[in-house]
Amino acid sequence: MDSIDRSQSMRRVRIRYELARLRRALLAVAPFVLVVAVALRLTHRPSSTLWFGGLTVAISTAMLWYGRDWQRAVLPGAVAGLFPLALSLFANGVHGCGAGSCSSLCVPACSLGGIVAGVAIAGVANRRRAGVWFWLSASGIALLTGSMGCACIGSTGVVGLAVGFAAGAMPGLVRWAFGRRAT
């Protein structure tokens, strides 16, 4: 075959490769769509849940399609984010979150969930000796997942989640940073 055939062939092969990765990403993210559906059912503020859920699904799909550290971060991030999501939805259900009425329960729930998520991400990253991109992408997915529930009281819940996450991840992050410097 001549070089034109070869380059055409390479182009077709590349398209098949990318489509295969995209199909695989969509398949992998499908269970998370169920999580979003459940969260929408339980939350008292569906608009913010839908917004964060849609964003999480879109970003996760892109990361899974791209591959490498980004792909490896999706599952740990999503699982870690389930802790703050579950706690905030529980607080939602118990307390009926609305603006100004649930700082005593929802914010602590989000902060506690954030701490657990941070510890979980730090543990996975250190065990895998993961790189910076893993940290960033897993943390992002965890925060977006948790925000589906923590946004029930607006930005206060999300900030509480973020602060808790940072507190939980910090020791692991420091250990990771010192470990990299040593090597």
Binding site: V13, R16, A20
Partner: peptide, 18 residues
């Protein structure tokens, strides 16, 4: 052979990730 090779290359790269 050209057809087979072309299809094989596409399938190899399509299946590589999974």
């Amino acid at each position: 052979a050209a057809d087979a090779a072309q299809e094989a290359m596409q399938k190899i790269f399509e299946r590589a990730p999974a």
